[in-house]
Amino acid sequence: MLLEVKDLFVNAGEKEILKGINLKINAGEIHVIMGPNGSGKTTTANAILNNPLYQKKSGEIIFEGENINNLKTDEIARRGIFMSFQLPEEIPGVSVTNFLKYAKGKVTGKPVKIFEFKNELKKYMDELKMNPKNMDRSLNVGFSGGEKKKNEILQLLVLNPKLAILDETDSGLDVDAIKTVSKGIEMFKTNENSVLIITHNTKILHSLKPDYVHVLVDGKIVKTGDASLAKEIEENGYEKYKN
């Protein structure tokens, strides 16, 4: 088992958001968490990465057999969990290349060879149809919504984690951009690593085949099924899962 979430309760400030989440992800699997706005999807991702803005009240997060509840975010990242942000932060004065080179050094614990690294970066950027000029621009500064999302997938490819959590990676993208992003995720995916897709729509699932689909409503997973569950929600919405 790669990741196990056991009976997780999480607050954001005073407000209780997650009310007992259970989740098991094995190596090689693609999971999807779907749910209406405000159901706790983003909170789930942030809780796994231990964002200090969210407080775990009870429950456990086990990664590769070890409780990571209280690890710092960077330690979690170095163990192999990556999160693609819904709203990536802008960092003025730090170029995409320098940032990724530095982060890769941190995550792999090895010095990064500049020439190889730049080639790798260029290859991925081509695949993601990113403007090569973006390599030298400040991280996410002045990037369009689509460019920011592609940049998140670029980071995913470069950092090559064991578990990728993709928070609303498809939101706000047009049809072509969704295809490109899906292609990036396919490039990343192997039999050893896993993906957890968090989304409130199903467009991205047309090209990615999930093994499990979980429906999250009001801080609880109310149903788990296979890919057909996503299809059913696409047709009927969440109405029947709400109280």
Binding site: L49, D74, F85, P88, E89, I91, P92, A103, K106
Partner: peptide, 29 residues
């Protein structure tokens, strides 16, 4: 911003490294 620090930490940077990177970026122009 705390959000920016969290973003950088999610990429494997320690809190100190994240802050140093933000400050250097601030001074970069």
């Amino acid at each position: 911003s705390d959000k920016t620090i969290f973003y950088l930490m999610s990429r494997g940077l320690s809190e100190e490294d994240a802050k140093a990177m933000i400050v250097r970026g601030f001074a970069y122009p």
